[in-house]
Design a protein around this nucleic acid. Structure first.
Lengths: 219, 219
DNA sequence: TTGACAACTTAGGACTCCTAACTTAGATCA
DNA sequence: TGATCTAAGTTAGGAGTCCTAAGTTGTCAA
């Protein structure tokens, strides 16, 4: 079984894109387990934690909005919200926008748990900390592009990414901060692109594609 | 709410490592949903698919080994395996290594499903395909390093990574393929590093750290 | 031969997630 | 003024995921 086989790796290894996919799969595994464990330690289920985190990050939301953001169906949300209300971590109030909808907001206790839940993925940040700054930037750039592709394919539900937002103006000036956010009227660099801006407003389909192409244009 | 606020992004954005974590979180979400959906289409559960994929990729395994590889407890595996045996996708046979253990091997039908299950994460590969080759390499390098860190922290169960394998010889020569695999006696480049080599044998703790430091050494 | 060990298996419970079938407040329109 | 439509939730039911705790059972060591 052993011997000089320089062709071994080319024959047996998959293309780098498949290797990336596998790596992300493994990272996803760690993420799932951590979320589960950290939720349990906080006396919540994973979904309950995610709901609280979303409410803290984005302000009051309806059940429908939550289901879109978390990528699960309404009944699943409905179930978890019932428990959160029973635990006095969330309150309901009427939503002026829709007749049957109710706006969900965290109570003070819920908000504090939600804030903690938001930091659950940060154990990842520790694992990233050892990368050199330029490696981190390259890594982040890859992630932004991947997420955009996944969203294009309809595999990621909602995302508050700058590159799909109607307020985003890519490459409007030279220098290190070429982009601009029209909402806050501020320049921003590629490093500063947000993935979950609460002010995100989805641009129309054609405008979105346009934004993306401008953003990707090199030079 | 609108106005010239150049400080907006620095004030409201998190550090890049946290942004990376959030991005990976979103990607993980897509991964979970895809796995679920693709498993359903194949008439399997997600876990069953992963078990079949592992058996195809690594050859016959015991329940214990499966539970380590998939990062779930033995009862969970036991449950899924029972269903797979009922479906005639997996067979048991005695394991010569352990008295009470049984080796699980896929039937032909199970093997074909397992081969398909192995390609489930590949939808990610499509999303990566738009990245330039150098971006892909940088991305992959980041992933390898992250996985290594996560494993260091005990957050990823088993991994057949070259950088933790006793057969791995990092940086033994100059040029584009500086590393060497002593098992197949072949040079390999950083791009060719494997994440799930079936021949992986875990090096002892101290040796592992040594390997890693050699691998990380720049220049 | 008695006990420890290791690898399961069983039992039981909480949570996730889905589809399908209601329920209901308001809007639309005849 | 109703009849119908729409959209947001809720309820019911079922498969699957996970866990902990408590057996089972071959083998090996004392």
């Amino acid at each position: 079984m052993t011997g000089t086989r320089p062709e071994f790796f080319d024959e047996n290894s998959e293309p780098i894109s498949a290797r990336i996919a596998m790596g992300l799969h493994k990272i996803g595994l760690a993420m799932k387990q951590q979320a589960w464990q950290q939720a349990n330690e906080a006396g919540l289920s994973a979904t309950q934690g995610q709901i609280l985190a979303a409410l803290v990050a984005n302000g009051p939301l309806s059940g429908k909005e939550l289901s879109e953001r978390l990528g699960v169906t309404l009944p699943t949300i409905s179930d978890s919200v019932r428990v959160l209300v029973e635990k006095a971590l969330v309150t309901r109030s009427a939503d002026p926008r829709h007749p049957r909808a109710s706006l969900l907001a965290p109570t003070p206790k819920g908000a504090s748990l939600g804030a903690r839940a938001r930091s659950w993925p940060e154990f990842m940040a520790d694992a990233v900390a050892d990368l050199a700054p330029d490696e981190q930037r390259a890594f982040f750039a890859g992630i932004v592009k991947m997420i955009r592709m996944l969203q294009e394919q309809g595999l990621i539900p909602i995302n508050g990414m700058c590159v799909t937002c109607k307020h985003f103006r890519p490459r409007v000036r030279p220098g290190p901060s070429p982009h601009h956010c029209a909402f806050v009227d501020a320049p921003l660099s590629s490093d500063q692109l947000r993935l979950d801006c609460p002010e995100h407003e989805l641009a129309a389909e054609t405008a979105r594609r346009e934004l993306w192409e401008q953003f990707m244009r090199r030079g």
